[in-house]
Simulated scan of single mutants.
Amino acid sequence: MTGLRVAAVQHDIVWHDRDANFARLAPMVSGAAASGARLVVLTETFSTGFSFDTPGIGEPEGGPSARFLSEQAEVHDIWIGGSCPEIGPGATDDDRRPSNTFVLAGPDGTVHRYRKIHPFSHADEQRWVRPGADLTTVTVDGVRLSLFVCYDLRFADEFWGLAADTDAYLVVANWPAKRRLHWSTLLRARAIENQAYVVGVNRVGTGGSLDYSGDSAIIDPLGEVLASGAGVETVLLADVDPAVVESTRSHFRFLQDRR
């Protein structure tokens, strides 16, 4: 094995209660690490629920959610990530909208950030969330990981643009159950068309007025589902191997035919 073991933590979220969520997630992270996971992926807005229109929901960079990730990374000697509402660069006194920020923390104190670039205009998300501008790819133990958040999954061009330098796409989400078919279909499509692993991590339970079914999955470069779960809290484990990506692309030379 030349890659890394990934744990996708499919979990419920206690609405607006960071401390309760940290307490809920800590044993799940510990269990994933004990199972050999080197990378643990939580959901979108893992510490608050998707509630960007709530006054004061934003945290400063390095706030409680990022600190939780960094602490877990150090304690368990792992990489760990998930998204949270962070008020970052560009904020002013007149505009304190947080970004939906995928924070990826390493055991040596390293922290990488991706700010979701696609606002969900169907729900007027741009009123409450500051969009990011830059895509992010991070190398962990020789595996190139590109970070995305929820609605980004619908926009194939960003995934295509990063394909040559990506072994696995990490997609964290609060994707509603009523559109679960779209979620599952698009996860597999992104894997197949880019010949890369996709790790899709979605919440379960009820948040606000929406129900969530999870349907988290780890998918290989040929679109085969290596691990999946729906409806309940669970931890999915699978190995992500860049050698498999390389051999798949060498055998099926699809990427070179793009125009």
Rank of each mutant, 00 (worst) to 15 (best):
A8H: 04
G214Y: 03
A91F: 07
V40K: 02
D165Q: 12
S228K: 12
E59A: 07
L147I: 13
V171F: 06
F159V: 06
S30A: 15
N21P: 05
G58E: 01
V9Y: 07
G142D: 09
S70E: 08
V138F: 02
D94M: 12
V14S: 04
D165W: 04
P89I: 13
E158P: 02
K116V: 08
N194G: 08
T136D: 03
V140I: 15
I117Y: 10
P176K: 04
E61D: 09
A156Q: 13
Q126L: 12
F254Q: 13
S47Q: 05
S70P: 00
R5H: 07
G205K: 01
T185N: 05
R180K: 13
W175V: 00
S35C: 10
I218H: 03
D17E: 13
V199C: 15
P55L: 06
R203Y: 01
G109C: 08
L226C: 04
A227C: 05
W128C: 10
I87P: 01
F102G: 02
V232S: 05
R130M: 06
R144V: 09
V75G: 05
E74W: 07
R249W: 03
Q195F: 03
P131E: 08
H76Y: 12
R38F: 00
L222M: 11
G214K: 01
I57H: 02
A156M: 09
V9S: 08
W183H: 07
G62H: 05
G82K: 03
S146C: 12
F120I: 09
Q195A: 10
G207P: 01
R180V: 15
P89E: 15
